[in-house]
């Protein structure tokens, strides 16, 4: 597969796997309104992923459909970061995972508006609006956790400490990123990292939350090396197409 399509997949897989985690949480929200809001985010992300997979299929032009790419692909061919695979431990973990990803996606799409690739430019413009709203919500939750009860503060700080080491992978430049940056298609991850850090600092300061003092990093998903979680996610997601390969649904 050519590098550009792999670059597309990195973006789509992040959206897909995170939406899967969010959709697991449907009907389990802390109150009804939050449940609906959570599902809206999941739907936005599926929408983003779906249009990218469709485009990959179109450009590949080898008979594989967008759904084939989702439902008939091996685990090691998924290129999402490990963070989005992390299970829904509690609402604090769900929101911290969301917040970190929202800030990343906001900056990524913001940069990709200048991509030389017409498709990426278009999807970046469209998705940016959705992601801005996601980030507004998740930032406000950081504040409610950090400036609310002691229990909430403790839970959210625990989630931040746990997930911090997974955030570095967002900015890890692999060979695909390098090639795409050179071609003027991809975005500059060092700029995204700087902006990401500034936004996280701003929200954490306002919310009285802190970043753990460690450089330890866990990564691999962008190159197909995942946590154990992804296997289970795909087993579930791909269950029907795997079990009934000839069926059309």
């Amino acid at each position: 597969m050519e590098a550009k399509l792999k670059y597309y997949l990195q973006i789509a897989d992040n959206a897909l796997i995170l939406s899967h985690r969010l959709s697991e949480n449907c009907s389990k929200g802390p109150f009804l309104e939050e449940d609906l809001a959570n599902t809206n985010v999941a739907l936005d992300l599926i929408g983003i992923a779906e249009s990218i997979y469709g485009e990959v299929a179109k450009q590949e032009n080898n008979g594989r459909s967008g759904d084939d790419i989702v439902y008939r692909r091996k685990e090691s061919e998924f290129l999402n970061v490990i963070l989005v695979e992390m299970p829904n431990e509690d609402f604090a973990h769900i929101m911290v995972r969301q917040f970190f990803t929202d800030v990343f996606q906001l900056n990524l799409f913001s940069e990709l508006r200048n991509s030389k690739d017409e498709f990426l430019m278009g999807i970046a413009h469209k998705s940016l609006k959705e992601v801005m709203y996601h980030l507004k919500r998740s930032s406000e939750w950081m504040y409610r956790f950090g400036q609310g009860t002691d229990e909430a503060k403790e839970r959210v700080q625990k989630a931040i400490n746990k997930y911090w080491k997974y955030t570095h992978e967002f900015f890890l430049e692999n060979t695909i990123d390098t090639e795409m940056l050179k071609a003027g298609i991809g975005s500059d991850l060092s700029i995204i990292k700087k902006n990401w850090q500034a936004k996280v600092d701003e929200i954490f300061e306002m919310s009285n939350l802190s970043i753990p003092d460690t450089d330890f990093s866990i990564e691999g998903g962008k190159n197909g090396l995942h946590s154990e979680n992804l296997g289970y996610i795909l087993t579930e997601m791909q269950f029907l197409p795997s079990k009934y390969p000839d069926a059309i649904w």
Binding site: K28, R144, G148, T149, E151
Partner: peptide, 15 residues
Amino acid sequence: AHKEGSWVRETAYVS
């Protein structure tokens, strides 16, 4: 779900 959401509702209320 309601029980697990209790601390979320509380912190939202307080903040």
